[in-house]
Write a protein that binds this DNA or RNA. Structure first.
Lengths: 229, 229
DNA sequence: CGGTATCCCCCGCGATACTG
DNA sequence: CAGTATCGCGGGGGATACCG
C-alpha cells in the first residue's frame, strides 16, 4: 500500500502502518511480552488468523517486528525490534487518553475471557503465599461457558484455565463482568465493590484480606477519568 | 460503530475513533490551529469533502471537537475541546516515531502544494524585514500547474498564493520538490542543499544570507532519523 | 465557502474449512 | 500450534455532480 495519504509528513507515514485495523492491539500484545502467534491471538481474540498473520507481515516489512526461530519445532517467535520498542510512547499516550476520554464501556465490550487474560498478566505473585495459589473466578452474569476461570499462580508464573485445574481453589472470587472490568480499569475502587457486595472473595480469612492487593490492575488504572467534572 | 474490537481496554476504545482513515491527519490540522472546513482540507488535500465532514462529525460525537458559530455567515468553526487538546501527546509521539522510523519518502508522497502549505505555517515572520516580504518558490521538477508558489509574509501573517500575488518578489527560491521536502523534514541540512546547488536563493545579497533562518521547518525536524546506523 | 447527494466499485475483512 | 486457502459480502470511501 504505497503512499496511502499522498504526504511525506511523518504522522502520515506512520499512520499507514499504525492505523490499520487491529494494529494497535497487536502491538499492545507484543509490547506486553507476547511472542507466539496464539499468544497474541488470546489478547486480540476477535481477529482472524488470516488477518493477524497479514498484520504481522506488515509489521515485519515495516521493520517493527522480527521473527526468531524458537525451540525444537520449526516455529518462530515474534519480537519487537528497536523501532518496535520505540512505539511504547504511542501506546502509552493512546491508552492514557482512552482512559481519560474514551466512550463508556458497552455491553459488547465486556468479554470475560479477555478480562481474565488481561488480569493474568498483572498478578503480584511475589505477594502471594509460597507455593501454588489457585484463584477461582466466577462471573455470575456470563454465559455458561465463560462463567468460570482459574488463575493458577506459582511465582512468577500465572496460568489461565477454563477448566478446573485439578488443584484445590485457594480463594474464590465472585462478581459480575462489569464490576470486575471497572475495577480492572481503575474506574471503580475494589474496596467499594467489596463493600457493595458486587464483588466477593471467599476463602481463609487471612488470605481474603491480602487478596485485593494481588491484583495489580491495568497499567492505566491510576489515570483518572476526565468526565468526572 | 459500537464496540469494533470487543474489548474495554482504553487503547481499543481510543482506537475506534483515532485509527479511522485520515483521522490523525485531520487532528494534526486542528491541532495546528486550523478551524475552517477548507482550511483543514488544504492540509489534507486528498480527503473528499464527504469523508472529511463525516470524520468531523465523528470527532464531535466523540467529544474531541466542538463547533462554534463564526463571523457573519451562517458557518461555523471547528474547535478542539479539552479532550481534543489532550490528543497532542499522541500526535507528538506518532510524529516523532514516524520521523525516526517510518519508510522513506516515495515519489507519490511529494506533493509540492502540500509542502508549501506546511511551510507557510512555519515561517519566522518576526525575523524578516519590516513590511511585506514575498518569497517565490520554484519547483523545477513539478508539473506545470504546481511549479510556482508565493509566500506573502507580513508579520505575523503568511499567505500562500498559486498565482503571482501582484507584488514584486523579495527573494526567489529554486529547488526540486524532494530537496525542499527533505530540508523541511530535517533530513537534509539546508546548508548542504545550498552548497550542492540543489536549492538556490536569489535576491538582494543581504537578504539571501538571512533567508535560510526564516524557514522554521517541521516541528519534528530536530528529531534524528534512526536508520543512520 | 461549506457542504449534500448519489452512484458504484473494490477490497478489506469475516467465516469456514483444511494442512503440515 | 501456526498457519494457508477460498469464498463471499458489506460498506467504506473515491468520484462526480449539485446546492444554498
Amino acid at each position: 500500500m504505497p503512499s496511502q495519504f499522498g504526504q511525506f509528513c511523518p504522522i502520515a507515514l506512520a499512520s499507514e502502518v499504525l492505523t490499520q485495523k487491529w494494529m494497535l492491539l497487536v502491538l499492545r500484545e507484543l509490547n506486553a511480552g507476547a511472542t507466539r502467534f496464539n499468544e497474541i491471538r488470546r489478547g486480540v481474540p476477535r481477529i482472524s488468523a488470516t488477518l493477524l498473520k497479514q498484520r504481522l507481515l506488515q509489521l515485519e516489512s515495516a521493520g517493527i517486528v522480527t521473527r526468531r526461530p524458537v525451540g525444537a519445532d520449526g516455529h518462530e517467535a515474534y519480537i519487537l525490534t528497536e523501532a518496535g520498542a520505540e512505539l511504547k510512547p504511542i501506546l502509552s499516550a493512546v491508552g492514557t487518553w482512552g482512559q481519560r476520554w474514551a466512550r463508556d464501556i458497552e455491553r459488547e465490550d465486556l468479554d470475560p475471557a479477555w478480562l481474565v487474560w488481561a488480569m493474568h498478566r498483572r498478578i503480584d505473585t511475589a505477594a502471594m503465599p509460597q507455593g501454588r495459589t489457585v484463584l477461582a473466578l466466577h462471573f455470575v452474569d456470563a454465559p455458561a461457558h465463560h462463567r468460570l476461570f482459574w488463575l493458577v499462580c506459582e511465582h512468577p508464573r500465572v496460568e489461565v484455565c477454563i477448566k478446573p485445574p485439578g488443584f484445590d481453589d485457594t480463594l474464590r472470587v465472585e462478581t459480575d463482568v462489569r464490576t470486575m472490568a471497572e475495577v480492572w480499569r481503575g474506574i471503580r475502587p475494589i474496596g467499594q465493590a467489596l463493600s457493595e457486595g458486587s464483588l466477593t472473595i471467599e476463602g481463609p480469612s487471612a488470605l481474603v484480606g491480602q487478596a485485593p492487593g494481588w491484583f495489580l490492575l491495568s497499567v492505566f488504572s491510576e489515570t483518572k477519568r476526565a468526565d468526572c467534572r
